[in-house]
């Protein structure tokens, strides 16, 4: 990718201060900045906007008091999972799916083998019809 294009995107997203740039791109971006007048111009433009953002009003301190908020909230009940979730741990979804699949496989096997047995010749089956005896010829 074009380095200047990436620099433009980087500075357009994170602003002029290299400390705000992603650490793994900082060195390369600063090297480009040192040798490219266009990159330097982009940085100056971003710095002007940064200076304005730095004059954004600061949020006032919270009116809520931490201790009383914590005390009030901790009167609420906590959510506890069903016991089997503790037994199964973090991989519960995997195990639930695995057990479900195994159960489906066992049921399928049982049903399948039962029906296969039914396909065998019944013990009291009627005698086969002799087609030749009823033929007019």
């Amino acid at each position: 990718m074009n380095r200047l294009a990436r620099f433009r995107n980087l500075i357009g997203a994170y602003g002029a201060d290299p400390r705000r740039w992603p650490p793994d791109e900082r060195a390369e971006a600063e090297a480009l900045l040192a040798r490219s007048a266009e990159a330097a111009a982009l940085q100056r433009r971003a710095a002007a906007l940064d200076a304005l953002l730095d004059r954004a009003p600061v949020p006032a301190a919270p009116r809520i008091e931490a201790a009383s908020l914590a005390a009030r909230i901790s009167l609420s009940p906590q959510e506890r999972s069903r016991p089997y979730r503790y037994l199964l741990g973090a991989q519960d979804k995997f195990w639930i799916r695995a057990v479900g699949l195994a159960a489906a496989a066992i049921i399928g096997f049982v049903v399948g083998t039962t029906q296969m047995a039914d396909l065998g010749e019944p013990a009291n089956s009627p005698a086969p019809i002799d087609v030749a005896e009823i033929s007019p010829w």
């Binding site: 600061v58 949020p59 006032a60 301190a61 919270p62 809520i64 931490a66 201790a67 909230i73 901790s74």
Partner: peptide, 21 residues
């Protein structure tokens, strides 16, 4: 509850500022 109160104390100001922003 004391551990929770400490968490609230640590994060209340920053959380409020972020939500306000």
């Amino acid at each position: 509850k004391a551990a929770f109160a400490l968490l609230v104390r640590r994060h209340l100001a920053r959380a409020t500022a972020l939500a306000q922003r």
